[in-house]
Simulated scan of single mutants.
Amino acid sequence: MNAPLKADAFGVGAQPIPVADPIIRFEQVGKSYPGRRGQNAVTALSGIDLTVPKGAIVGVIGRSGAGKSTLIRLVNGLERATAGRILIEGEDVTGLTEAGWRARRRQTGMIFQHFNLLSSRTVFDNVALPLEIAGAPKAEIESQVTRLLELVGLADKRERYPAELSGGQKQRVGIARALATEPKVLLCDEATSALDPETTQSILALLRKVNRELGITILLITHEIPVIKEICDRVAVIEDGRIVEEGDVFSVLTRPQHPTTARFVEAVTGVELPAYLADRIRTQARPGDETVLRITFTGENATAPVISRLSSTIGVDVNILAGRIDAIAGRPFGSLLVSVPTQEPELAAVLGALKTLELKAEVIGYVS
């Protein structure tokens, strides 16, 4: 089995990353389903090693069928592992009885893609449901639900029914309900996939608030890389039931080591060729052509006047074609398309200077 690739603190190489104080740990976890009518068993997960640090937001990203939903359902006992161990707060939950899982689930909240609210109950009663099941006194339920509705911004909607709410408001009810029993871990199953972009941003901001203010560890699964980029501290990329890359979000997204990761992150870290340029670019240089480079900026270099310094230092004209500066995990990240002379020694001087500045440069093609 190939181990998942892990970027170091600078996003280079494949070094192991120590993770202190884990709250969830997968150790060589596998999950298989019996085959139908004599067919071979179906393997959903294989050799999963993953650590979720206490207080972190960890995302698992993968395409449909990659195994991410199975992975998250193992954490609250909705699925049972067929190999390996899962430890939660140091307890091996792999062999828990159903009674044991009921106790464990009170420490684990879950929010869903399609909200899963009860249409016949008000907002207040939907949030109160886990507390009622746990046998909490009415005074405690009133106090806890009122506090949570204020937290999620729905204090004025307590007597409304789900049909009267927007999608974002329904998800806020789902978050409040998941927090009702004061869990230590919040599981998010594609929590923003059914929402529009603006509402998605507001829900992600709320999840970050829950994480920071309440200290709740969040494990989320998604197929949307902007979700990972926006709020996660760490990320694991899953493909065909195996984790192919994992590490801190900034390192993984700015220096992906696996082709699957690179395909995911291209949309949020790259700069598309302008239409006028895409039609003209060639893979082989002709006399007089300019070389088109994609330059990646990270850390302090993302906002520093690197191009002007480059031009003044080596005396080569650098033409800016397109660019963007963004933030990943709260740290600046930039990508720039430029054209520079193809002839030597100018091109060698440019590439050498970029290397000295510890900037990644990729040759995209050539234009006249």
Rank of each mutant, 00 (worst) to 15 (best):
L165W: 11
I203C: 07
I328L: 05
L117G: 11
F333G: 02
A103L: 14
G215W: 11
P183Y: 05
S64L: 03
S64R: 03
P53H: 08
R85A: 12
T82K: 09
H258N: 13
Q144S: 14
C232H: 11
G38R: 08
G30T: 12
Q171D: 07
G100W: 08
V292A: 12
K138L: 03
I175N: 05
T146F: 10
D240R: 15
E190D: 10
D92Q: 06
R37W: 10
N126A: 09
D196Y: 12
T291F: 01
E224I: 02
I17F: 07
W101I: 03
I307A: 08
L179K: 08
S312Q: 14
D248R: 13
T51F: 00
K54G: 01
G352N: 13
D289T: 06
A128G: 12
T217M: 10
K6G: 01
A327V: 11
A66V: 09
V316N: 07
F112Y: 13
G323E: 02
A262D: 13
L71H: 09
Q343A: 15
T43P: 00
V249M: 00
I24S: 01
D196I: 12
N319V: 08
N76P: 11
G59E: 03
P4S: 05
V244A: 09
V12G: 00
P162N: 05
A44N: 02
F10K: 14
I325T: 15
A262F: 02
G215T: 09
V235C: 09
I295N: 04
D21G: 05
K184V: 03
T222P: 11
T261N: 04
G59A: 15
I314R: 10
T192D: 03
T303P: 00
A56D: 11
G215Q: 10
